[in-house]
Write a protein that binds this DNA or RNA. Structure first.
Lengths: 344, 344
DNA sequence: GTTAGCACTCGACATCGTTGAGTGCTAACA
DNA sequence: TGTTAGCACTCAACGATGTCGAGTGCTAAC
């Protein structure tokens, strides 16, 4: 048996309807809706074929059909009509981000809540990561008599800071001098390279060896423990609005997965370079998510790093809508991070 | 009618049982359990009295009784037996925090998940806040040709940073000189005071007026927009394990409240100075939380700031257990923030 | 003051028939 | 040969009905 034009059209009508209602769709519904002038009996025959081909499932014999993961795949790959976002919501988003709050974490948190509000699904946003950042400035700022803050500025615009303990008292000017020396030595290098370079330098310098050693130790630590991805989640409660999650136990296991940010990040974070990913049901590879789909997109920063934005929803997700929203938001974030002047 | 010793004992038994099971407790249950050798009929009479006194509610005529908010109040205030935490879980916690991760945000996130894991309820941890921090150092770090990072170190150990745009190119040494001058001028003052002082200083200095103006603008911004509290939440999914939330709609509204961090923070953040707060049901003042209770405790940092940790659970919460866990965790965090050497 | 006994209430649960949406099959039709 | 009308069949959802048991309140006896 072969897939033909008419079967495709019927399948599409079924998926569209099911995405909208979440209720198994029967032959009569399609016969009435799809404007091709076929009786329900004919539709029935076609649906039977579609089921045999693996595109439809039947919860029980006298219920309508629901699309299978295979059907969604087909839908996403070729059947789907491009979604249009309503202009006003787009505008709302722009306005939201035109404010002056530009701490990266805030932007990411914000993005997650905007996406979840627009889609009514659960949104996840990961902070950018990517190529090894190159050091631009290393500076010590006095914090207390025996402590200094190490500020590291990299070309990706990302700033890391942490205090280190000083064994002896060092005055502000000395700290600055040392900062300059280190900056001079490591500018343009990656953190890893800097860790190669520093020991030499420490050898050459006579004074303040102890201090230099602790800076070295600090950098070395940072190298092996890369900054944790910031994971923003929004709209987890949205999922409970869908009948798919009227079973509390199911909802609980979903939510508890949402709480383990590390795991969630690794699920969302497509290692691929794809602009868009759509994973449907079992394709997610996560047992807890067999009846979820995940759509992800990426955004990039001026520094050449990439972040991920994703939406998690039931398999009967409004794919086209979600994709256009993610698309739009990806552009927004890219603009914001690479365009804006006062970013972090 | 008066409350007497025996009524108290019976009430306590009822509350204990209800907290454990969540099922309305009947007279026979108490008659069997409470070792005072009374028949169910007698208990029944007493329960009837307790209901009249407002300590018990009856869902319907032929069901057992459940404690009212008033009963929990009494329980918490005087009936409750101090809870004991199992030694091993206490040890686990200590070990957890003895690691080297000492970014404040991480510690707070971590604390929330530990508390929720121990209590099986929802935990909320707010970052410390309190007295106006006093400036210690202001330093400009070059980031790009036309941008600098402003690092502000205060006596509370909290560091704020953000980039500002420079209209003209300024070299590193000049930035440092300006930093020293500003630091000199504002050290020991609050942010608000600094904003009074700076204009004078700007007037006196001839050069770099533009740059100084943007720093002033930056400080002024910060003053009016205080750093957002960091709000860590853990174990929201725990709530779904309790039959109280088997109603999905109820669960949804709870979770959606948990997602609005600002609101949540203002609920948790007891303006009072109390070490412990227990708010039961309606006492929370939040309509969505009429059948929740909130227990909060505080921790403090070396800098004299205070943070809040809280647990949200059903009104039939294991109060004593929660209180001892919060107590323990409060001490842990206080130690960590005021004792540790390499805190942020 | 306490208790045993008893009638009563009411949610929880299972059973059962009805309804209606939906299917598959067959025979007739274009 | 593809399409359609008709019909028997299936099955979840729903409401009515009955039973069970936990629990109460009351009364009378101890």
């Amino acid at each position: 048996m072969e897939m033909d034009e008419r079967k495709l059209k019927i399948l599409q009508a079924i998926i569209d309807d099911y995405i909208l209602t979440g209720v198994p769709v029967g032959s009569r519904t399609i016969s009435k809706k799809a404007d091709m002038g076929l009786s329900s009996a004919t539709i029935r025959n076609e649906m039977s074929d579609l089921e045999e081909l693996g595109y439809l499932d039947q919860p029980h014999v006298s219920a309508g059909r629901i699309p299978s993961a295979k059907a969604y795949r087909l839908y996403v790959d070729s059947l789907m009509k491009a979604g249009r976002i309503r202009d006003d919501s787009l505008e709302t988003v722009s306005r939201h981000f035109s404010g002056r709050v530009h701490q990266m974490e805030d932007v990411i948190d914000h993005a997650a809540s905007v996406i979840s509000a627009l889609t009514k699904y659960t949104a996840v946003v990961l902070s950018p990561k990517g190529k090894q950042p190159r050091l631009q400035t290393v500076q010590l700022v006095p914090v207390a008599r025996d402590a200094a803050l190490v500020v590291i500025v990299t070309d990706t615009g990302i700033v890391r800071d942490s205090t280190i303990h000083l064994n002896s008292e060092v005055d502000s000017d000395t700290l600055y001098a040392i900062s300059r020396a280190i900056t001079e030595a490591v500018r343009g290098h990656t953190l890893a390279e800097a860790c190669e370079i520093l020991p030499d330098m420490i050898g050459r310098m006579q004074e303040n060896e102890e201090l230099l050693q602790s800076i070295y130790g600090f950098l070395n630590d940072r190298r092996s423990a890369p900054r944790k991805l910031h994971v923003a989640i929004g709209g987890t409660s949205n999922m409970l609005s869908y009948p798919e999650y009227s079973d509390v136990e199911k909802a609980r296991s979903f939510l508890s997965l949402m709480e383990t940010r590390d795991k969630l990040a690794s699920i969302i974070d497509g290692n691929g370079e794809m602009a868009f990913t759509v994973r449907i049901g079992p394709e997610t590879g996560v047992p807890e998510m067999v009846d979820c789909s995940i759509v992800t997109a990426t955004y990039s920063t001026g520094g050449g790093q990439q972040g991920t934005i994703g939406v998690i929803g039931p398999t009967r997700m409004q794919y086209s809508r979600v994709i256009s929203i993610l698309n739009m938001m990806g552009h927004q974030l890219t603009d914001l991070f690479s365009g804006g002047s006062d970013k972090e």
